[in-house]
């Protein structure tokens, strides 16, 4: 089993409560992640990132008050060591490069199966030297 201090602390940012819940359960079931906070818009995301300094931020783009592209640079400013991966319903071809220009380390389209979501997150974190734990469950 992954030791507590090896868990990937994660902040989930999405304006849809149902999606936040499902993503949280998916991550926690894997055993390598610890969801330390949630946010429903860009403003909350910046505050949570400032307080929690998560290793991973899963960031939606289309949100009220402040969207993901607006929040991205500020999230990285208050939590420079965080890896921000965009998790969005928009096409990766269309928004992926734009998100990258604002500091996102990767882009995952919503609608992927839970196993693929985990695989993509771990793969992208591995590419950014995010020190991914070897395995989750004992």
């Amino acid at each position: 089993m992954t030791e507590p201090d090896e868990l990937i602390t994660t902040l989930i940012v999405d304006d849809v409560p149902g999606l936040r819940r499902l993503v949280r359960y998916t991550l926690e079931d894997d055993g390598r992640f610890l969801v330390v906070g949630e946010a429903e818009d860009g403003l909350q995301a910046i505050e949570r990132a400032r307080e929690l300094r998560p290793r991973l931020v899963l960031l939606d783009l289309s949100m009220p008050k402040m969207d993901g592209l607006e929040a991205l640079p500020s999230i990285l400013q208050v939590s420079p060591d965080s890896i921000v991966l965009v998790l969005s319903g928009f096409s990766e071809d269309r928004l992926g490069p734009i998100a990258g220009r604002f500091g996102a380390m990767g882009y995952i389209q919503k609608g992927v199966a839970p196993s693929e979501l985990l695989a993509r997150i771990l793969s992208l974190m591995g590419e950014t030297n995010g020190d991914v734990p070897a395995s989750g469950l004992c």
Binding site: G18, G111, P114
Partner: peptide, 21 residues
């Protein structure tokens, strides 16, 4: 496009993830 995204794409993505779980 934003309205379709927020009301349709998001909903389908959530439904799919729920069923797959």
């Amino acid at each position: 496009a934003l309205e379709i995204h927020d009301n349709v794409v998001q909903g389908l993505a959530e439904a799919k993830l729920a069923i797959e779980r």
